[in-house]
Design a binder for these strands. Structure first.
Lengths: 228, 228
DNA sequence: GACTATTTTTAGGTATTCCTAAATATTATT
DNA sequence: AATAATATTTAGGAATACCTAAAAATAGTC
């Protein structure tokens, strides 16, 4: 039942494929290459390897991209659970800020034991989301269902709450925290600029409005809230 | 000033050389091979590499073993500091027992950042020894001086205190804890068996005596204490 | 001091994971 | 439907860190 242990490199590929395929499409060679900072030719080689391994970790047909098999998905969720628990632990137990945790978690996620995972999960009270609001897969490796969606899809005037800030760039994260854009923040969209997709966002808690470019707003995921 | 970052493999070699040369002799190819579970031929290759790198990490002359350069020693002490701080953190903050920490620390020691190191050191109150009593190098990478010595060198009848239990085998560590042989334990040697070097050890706290074979006793390091 | 046993080194090889450059397949445009 | 642009794959290579087998050096014994 327990799959062998995978190399750090393979775990990074599986994690990247998981995230890229969450949109419903297979992960293309070039999208993987860009995300992993590896040349496309190398990605092709690794994908072919992951499809050949027994049991196969990905399903692959030439020029058509890769998706995870059930085995591959389990392995990916294991790494994602590690990553998100570690990020949470660094913030909650060691006083890191949310912009400092990504790199550390990226290195630690591949080396911690299942025992370590269980202990920090217990120490944190089995959290359901990490400091960026990303859901933490359960011990049984199920990704919790969520209902949030990217901010650009929010209707003008609807009240929403920030659920996730899907960014790892430390400077961007500090910037957003400075603006009050953190999980739990209430907001609504007042206007959309037709050509550049800039959003004018209102934050009732600060009684302030600000403008977010499309490159930022797509990383902010929100959920609808009842008006009060 | 800051040396490049070393591979996990190189860090393991440097740590092993540090420990093997602490006895005053250069580390031989075969002793390194045995400690690292690597074939001697491979060790020769790596030692030559470590001596050729700029700046050199080891000093090496053929058939005569390896010692660390100042650079190599700094790198080794960095890894050892990581290892011992992590072991301490696992016990103090996450409830591990002293026999469960070695493997976890061996993996984590290579991937934590200096920031992580500083944070756990601060969280622990900058401890001077790890759960096995081994001294933790300072932030400035100085190994604290110590006065302890192996139990077989303790004179019969002298009161001593256990300072270090230099073992990583979990079963042995559990055994010794069961016997009361942990850092801080008072003891004295009542008798030495002439041929097998077995020691009859008395533990005043338990008002009990026990016999330790030479293979165990050499891993127990003690310090003299004033009689009261 | 010669000889044997042991240790160490050299030589050549393997697996992993990346690379570049060239060839090929797909997609978009006219 | 042909062509151009883009994406992907193939082919061949490099670095790291191991391996085995054979050669060479050292150490121990008579």
């Amino acid at each position: 039942m327990m799959p062998k242990d995978l190399t750090e490199s393979i775990e990074n590929y599986l994690k990247a494929i998981y995230e890229l395929t969450s949109a419903g499409q297979p992960a293309s060679t070039s999208s993987l290459a860009e995300r992993l900072n590896i040349k496309p030719a190398s990605v092709t080689g690794m994908i072919q390897h992951l499809a050949d391994v027994q049991p196969p970790l990905v399903e692959y047909s030439k020029h058509r991209g890769a998706t995870l098999t059930a085995h591959g998905e389990r392995a990916a969720l294991e790494v994602i659970r590690h990553h998100r628990l570690i990020e949470t632990y660094l913030v909650e137990a060691l006083g890191y800020s949310w912009d400092e945790v990504h790199e550390e978690a990226c290195r630690l996620e591949h080396v911690i034991s299942e025992d370590f995972e269980q202990r920090i999960a217990a120490a944190l009270g089995h959290p359901q989301r990490d400091p960026h609001g990303d859901p933490i897969p359960t011990t049984e490796l199920v990704m919790p269902a969520d209902s949030e969606f990217p901010l650009p899809a929010l209707e003008i005037g609807s009240a929403a709450v920030v659920r996730r800030v899907k960014a790892s760039n430390p400077a961007l994260l500090r910037h957003l925290k400075g603006l009050g854009i953190i999980p739990g923040a209430r907001l609504s969209v007042q206007a959309v600029s037709e050509f550049d997709r800039n959003l004018t966002v209102h934050l009732p808690a600060r009684n302030a409005s600000l403008v977010l470019g499309a490159a930022i707003s797509k990383h902010i995921w929100v959920d609808l809230v009842e008006e009060e």
